[in-house]
């Protein structure tokens, strides 16, 4: 059986119908375990004190902010190449979720930055990049809203997503060029010596898994809603025509 069979809306609805509660359950479990473990059963960092614990929200949401865009890019490509409606609707469904993760990353970053750097906001390359990513999300969502015909909207937003990805990447490097910044380096790469200590790392991994599952659950749910809305529209349009 080909994986593309799940691109059939009916099949998608049926299979995600029973999958979704499990994904929700797993997401809830991971987040519950990860966050409680992270917040109450890890020691304070010797330099940053207990403020460091915000990484359990900050890091996973920042990761998902980018991953959501990548997922939208892949879904857009699938739509452009194979014309599977579910794919286009999944991209549409993922955008507000990705935007929310981006905003969470920015807000938690500000809350963390205040005690650490003494300022709520700095034009640090990574913060700036995330701010720019927010703008890309807003533009993408606005274009979906503005175009009436759903297939036209799917095509146009897919083209925007493609071009936007290239420019988002360019912006990232431009921003790095523009300001070297004060952000601490990525602390999760496996081979790095200055990795965060294991005590922080394991609960963080659980939290990341939780955020990934949460993202999947939200996107599946929103995609199902979009499919139903689309189906409803088609029925109404047909009704009007008949």
């Amino acid at each position: 059986m080909s994986i593309w069979e799940y691109a059939n809306p009916k099949k998608f609805m049926a299979s995600t119908g029973w999958l979704l509660p499990w994904v929700w359950g797993m997401a809830g479990l991971c987040l519950l375990v990860g966050l409680i473990w992270g917040y109450f059963f890890t020691p304070d960092d010797f330099r940053q004190g207990s403020t460091v614990k915000i990484i359990y929200l900050h890091v996973p949401s920042a990761m998902m902010a980018i991953n959501a865009w990548v997922m939208m890019l892949v879904a857009s490509l699938i739509w452009l190449i194979r014309r599977h409606h579910v794919s286009a609707l999944a991209a549409k469904a993922a955008a507000p979720v990705g935007l929310t993760f981006t905003v969470i990353a920015l807000v938690t970053g500000a809350l963390w930055g205040q005690p650490m750097w003494g300022t709520w906001w700095a034009w640090d390359p990574r913060l700036t990049s995330f701010l720019i990513l927010t703008l890309f999300y807003l533009g993408y969502i606005a274009l979906w809203q503005a175009v009436e015909n759903p297939d036209t909207a799917a095509d146009l937003t897919a083209v925007l997503c493609l071009v936007g990805s290239v420019f988002a990447l360019l912006s990232r490097y431009a921003v790095l060029f523009w300001n070297q910044g004060l952000h601490q380096g990525a602390s999760l790469s496996l081979d790095k010596e200055e990795n965060v200590a294991d005590v922080f790392w394991f609960p963080l991994l659980v939290c990341i898994a939780g955020f990934v599952l949460l993202f999947v659950a939200l996107v599946l749910m929103r995609t199902r809603t979009e499919i139903r809305a689309r189906r409803l529209q088609a029925l109404i349009a047909r009704e009007r025509l008949a």
Binding site: L135, L138, G139, A142, V163, F167, S171, Y173, A174
Partner: peptide, 13 residues
């Protein structure tokens, strides 16, 4: 809203 984010790299450089 669509174009301004795309202008970022050009503006910066």
């Amino acid at each position: 809203l669509l174009v301004l984010p795309l202008y970022v790299p050009t503006l910066i450089f």
